[in-house]
Amino acid sequence: MTNMTSLCRAVLASAGLAYFAVAFPAAGEPDLTGVWTNYRNPNAPAAARGTRPQLPLTPEAKAKADRYVEVTTGTNYTPGGYCVGGGMPGSMLGSGGYPMEIIQRPEQITVVYEAHNEVRRIYFGARAPDPATMFPERNGFSIGRWDGDTLIVETSKLVEQVDTAYPHSDQARIVEEYRVSEENGTRVLTAKMTMTDPKFLTAPFTMEKKWQAIPNGVVRTYECTEPDWLDLLDRLMKGEAPKS
């Protein structure tokens, strides 16, 4: 692959196609392109169902998070139940059961989390838009850079979320460090995530997440609001009034 990459670069460069030539990972940077699922340690028992992680929340944040748990526990009221994505860092930390796909180009890495069709765009260098033009959103605004073979992603422009296992305010910042390794012939991707938040956290919160590659894996479309639309369409076609 490396030889092919070099050959392609040489051919493209000689043809003056500098823009396209950068479409290949630079030397030393691993290509993360592909489909990834939760890492499974073959020597460890299956994981038990987890509990909510304990974040070092400020009193204000804890009150909000506790209230969310109070009003939703034992109900079907979840963002996903309403076709709303988890948002960072939940979208990243929770991906894998529903796989994620990474599409890597030098100027942008696109991450598709199958669940809820969540998409993150990680911009590099001059490709990055002016942050002032970006709306805050559940997955924020992400800038990437390479430090040797480590991908570093810094995310800001988040919205306040208590409807998550990882409550945070709109002041939160998230740094992810991704590295690829190989274990027993399987490609493994590890992310070390640190979230800081002057409003919601009394200390940085870190977690580690691991995935393993699914060769020729498939991420499926997660169409979620279609049933509601089809119900409405069915009523309209029958001449019935829409449900209020």
Binding site: N38, Y39, R40, N41, A44, A46, A47, A48, R49, G50, T51, R52, P53, Q54, L55, P56, T75, N76, Y77, T78, G80, G81, G86, G90, L93, G94, S95, G96, G97, Y98, A115, T164, A165, T194, A203, P204, F205, T206, M207, E208, K209, K210
Partner: peptide, 20 residues
Amino acid sequence: IVSIAMLLVAAPATAVFAHH
């Protein structure tokens, strides 16, 4: 830093994505 190792992550995944 509050650090929680997640070598096997299926459990937190369900915590996040369980729909009900």
